[in-house]
Simulated assay, not measured.
Amino acid sequence: MAPTFVGYPKVFVVDAEGKPLLPCHPARARKLLKSGKAEVLRGSPFTIKLKYPVSTPVGSLRAKVDDGSRYVGIALVNEHTGEVVFRGVLVQRGDVVRLLTLRREYRRGRRYRIVRHRPCRNRARQQVVPFPSVRQKKEAIYRVLADLAKIAPISGVDVELVSSGVKNPALPGKSTREKVLNRDGACVLCGSTRRLQRHHLVPRSKGGTDTPENQVLLCAECHRKLHAGGATLDRRGKTFAWVAHAVLGKAYLLALLSRFGEVRVAEGWQTKEWRESLGLPKSHTNDALSLFLPGGPLKVFGPEYLIWPLRRRRWEGNPTKTCEEKNGFRHWDVVRAVRAGKVVFGCVRSLKARAMTLRTAKDDNFEVSYSKARLLHRPRGLAYMPVW
């Protein structure tokens, strides 16, 4: 059964002692605010704080994570009622490798510039596993869930792990060789059934996977001609490079997610079957909310969010950030702007003399006027931007 999408979002609630409660209807939150029984705690996601403690909170939510290399789908689902109270896409940082390389070059330059040269000490350092570029992506997922756990009662996590092995049951056969042989049956160029060999569309040396999607069946003669340049094959393979970061940190991610309770793991082909049973298109949030479907129909509340993990350490005297605040706006502020009669939500990217640019869902450099923008939320460690 297809899920029902509701336009208004659920309001997160915490009591006077900071314990997270189940989200409530916006009308109920409005009455609590008007009567003075609650106050606004944060703007995005919108959360209110009660002025009295709740001794016996009822209910819990389950976090759903669709892990990925660049984008990670996250959802909070009440499995008893089928309500999806939060869904968003975490945009992972892609500059960590470049910054680590730059830091290494700075260290090397400082070491060789001093008069009294000291020997290199990097061989005495222990290698951190997983690598820092991989570890920061897994820790970013944990940062988002830890932040949501402050306003939502999370009792467990369901996660889809990226896999590069032979896991797809759609093709008959146990091994990769059997799956390719049963799928093609003969040489894809000449149709011969003698002296068949497997050919990797993307070579393993260039990041190609050993999955059936990256292999085709060729006869020995066509295989030789293809490598010699005498034949062409109009097919695209599957590379392993885009899933390298997601695959390497599986154990580290599961260890982090176990802090929230029970962790259930699913494969990609299972998520696809669950998502297609709901009739949803392919997206990161749809994959996340489809994990381990509850018994009843799903009811999705509110908009989808784009989440950016901000850098924890500020670079004092950064020459590229000469303007910290202008006309009451700062970098990464979530604003609501109007341009050409259309309402746009975005995060502040740059502050110019006459206008500022925003990161939006469709444009990473959207320019708006200061007078046409209104501040909605000032993030501290994570920037949540609604996508209406």
Rank of each mutant, 00 (worst) to 15 (best):
L256C: 03
A244P: 11
R111T: 03
G59N: 03
V162I: 12
P153G: 06
V54W: 08
R121Q: 12
R121E: 08
E105D: 13
R339Y: 01
H25P: 14
S44M: 13
R198Y: 14
E316S: 15
L289H: 02
T232N: 13
H284S: 03
S55Q: 12
E39R: 02
E316H: 08
R378I: 05
G68E: 04
N78Y: 05
I48W: 00
K138P: 01
S205V: 10
C222K: 05
Y252L: 15
P53F: 06
A186D: 08
P23L: 03
V89P: 02
L382H: 05
Q92P: 03
R177P: 15
G302A: 05
G328I: 02
A16D: 10
L100F: 08
V344E: 04
R123L: 12
R121W: 08
D364T: 04
C24N: 09
A124Q: 14
K321V: 15
S164I: 08
Q136A: 13
T232C: 10
A255V: 13
G279S: 07
A373E: 00
Q126C: 15
W315I: 09
D210C: 09
P281K: 13
R103T: 12
K19R: 11
R359E: 09
G59S: 07
Y305P: 03
Q127V: 08
C24M: 09
L196M: 08
T47F: 01
V144Q: 02
G268Q: 04
V216S: 04
R224S: 15
L248T: 14
